[in-house]
Design a protein around this nucleic acid. Structure first.
Lengths: 123, 123
DNA sequence: AGATGTGGTAACAAATGGGTTACTACTAAC
DNA sequence: GTTAGTAGTAACCCATTTGTTACCACATCT
């Protein structure tokens, strides 16, 4: 059993409590229906409002707007207004902090793909 | 730019679309308020209904019950009834598939911890 | 002139998810 | 005898999220 723990194959009781509160903290920020999708889009080079709305399938302007405000408050997006452009352009740019989400996104995306393959196999 | 892509420092347009649908698939299963918390508890050795309700802070019996049914349908939990016990005991056990969530949980927990430290620093 | 694109907001409607309370039925312990 | 533990279910309500529609002002494209 000790070996299992060291190899990371079982969760200890201590890690359970730690994981529980830590994932709660993470999901508090990332758990919304749209949050991670928007982050992915921003990280992928979609920086403008309408561009994001097109990329994140199904999101409404109202929801996108409020989500972007939340993301900005959490430092996961930087809002930049380019006042010199002819129609004033607003950009939502990733921050250093946004990039720390890559491991989370990669893990989720990888699992999601495996899961989809699993579903198709069984049905 | 090519080097950035190869080093994984930027998301390509192709990866964007792939990540978007893949994380959507993942969040469809895992995105609920309680899902991952229950999975963590089960992986950590809490197998019984009341034990889970005590471990997953704040969940009601009704919600726990319905979440466990969903998890069972998705193969993320195995329901085993021990009929020979005096008060018949029901256990919710992790499956092989549950363990594939470890990378996801670890990534989320790690980010959640970093995020909490960040919050405390700034406020 | 009229459509489309820029970045949104306000008001209202609907859905979903989650919480609360009560209840089952049986056992063991205090 | 009463409290707590075993594993839940049923009915009801409420609140937060999410969606819908319409609208703003200004500019460029057709």
């Amino acid at each position: 059993m000790e070996k299992l723990k060291q190899a990371g194959l079982a969760y200890t009781e201590a890690r359970c409590a730690k994981n529980l509160t830590a994932t709660e903290d993470a999901l508090y920020v990332l758990g919304g229906k749209w949050t991670l999708r928007i982050v992915i889009a921003v990280l992928s080079g979609h920086h403008r409002f309408n561009d994001l709305q097109r990329t994140v399938n199904g999101i409404s302007a109202r929801v996108l707007s409020s989500e972007l405000k939340d993301l900005e408050l959490n430092g996961l997006v930087r809002r930049v207004v380019l006042a010199d452009q002819k129609p004033v352009v607003t950009e939502y740019l990733p921050t250093e902090y946004t990039r720390t989400l890559r491991t989370v996104i990669d893990a989720l995306a990888e699992w999601g793909e495996k899961h989809k393959r699993r579903i198709f196999k069984r049905e």
